[in-house]
Nucleic acid binder design. Structure first.
Lengths: 143, 143
DNA sequence: GCGGATTCATTAGCTTGCTAATGAAATTTG
DNA sequence: CAAATTTCATTAGCAAGCTAATGAATCCGC
């Protein structure tokens, strides 16, 4: 029901929101949200990374990351360990409880579902186009 | 710097955020945010629409819309008018102040900027692919 | 090796999404 | 026509994005 001509931007916004909602539903059985599940898998692939590094990988800011990490820690799924070399940093790890969760294959699953019924060459074109759009948006940001 | 293979979902999330940030910067000179500017143009194209209708057009929920509309009303850019036929509804209009703002051409401008340097046929493919992805995400939501 | 600059995590506070619940008005049904 | 249902806007409260500001630790330049 969005506004008629349905511009690219509208499509993007709507898709991202639907996507989020769909997978939110999917991971809620584990007591997770979309953002927290994304962080969980990123920690799993990069154990020992600092908070700043994780934030950069996820493309979010460190205060946002802190809040997500606090939540995972409260749920007993991740932990901060102080490192001796640098008193400012923590190294972040999954707990054993988190390792059992089948959520770790999350990203690949999301992608596979999303790509269903789409020709590989169309996917390739779309990837390229999205990358160019990201550059366009980025350029605009500085101007 | 996101996680290596840079999946589709990551691209989408990052693009939407960059896009938002870029245009946030663009409209802040008018005291607007991205979401509020989007609402403003939607009101402009559909004057007299109810809040529920506007929310549907924007793909957001009515409480979210209410908050945005309150803000525009506080800024003197939009107004609610009770309608005689239905005591529950308001008809929403732009004020004269809003009509002067050059923000009304906003959507087209966003789209044009985003599409720079992309071949028309690639854009077409991308539109189709995004639509299919939206269906995939939607389907998953119900399952 | 000391002092200024940078980096890291944190706090505080804003915006904008969401869902659930509510009251009032309109509509549908029996 | 009265009662039940639905619709509309609202309130309340949560999640997750952001920026700005802070304190502590590290690093660099001289």
């Amino acid at each position: 029901m969005p506004d008629r001509p349905f511009t690219l931007v509208e499509s993007l916004i709507e898709l991202t929101r639907t996507l989020r909602a769909a997978f939110e539903q999917r991971v809620e059985q584990y007591g997770l949200t979309f953002a927290r599940a994304r962080l969980l898998t990123t920690i799993g692939r990069n154990e020992g990374a600092s908070q700043a590094q994780l934030a950069a990988m996820l493309g979010i800011e460190t205060p946002t990351l802190k809040r997500l990490l606090d939540a995972l820690e409260d749920q007993g799924l991740a932990e901060r360990r102080p490192i001796p070399e640098d008193g400012r940093k923590y190294a972040v790890y999954l707990t054993e409880a988190a390792r059992i969760e089948p959520v770790l294959g999350f990203r690949a699953e999301v992608d596979a579902t999303l790509a269903q019924g789409i020709a590989p060459e169309d996917l390739a074109v779309t990837r390229r186009t999205l990358a160019q759009m990201a550059r366009n948006a980025e350029r605009l940001r500085q101007a």
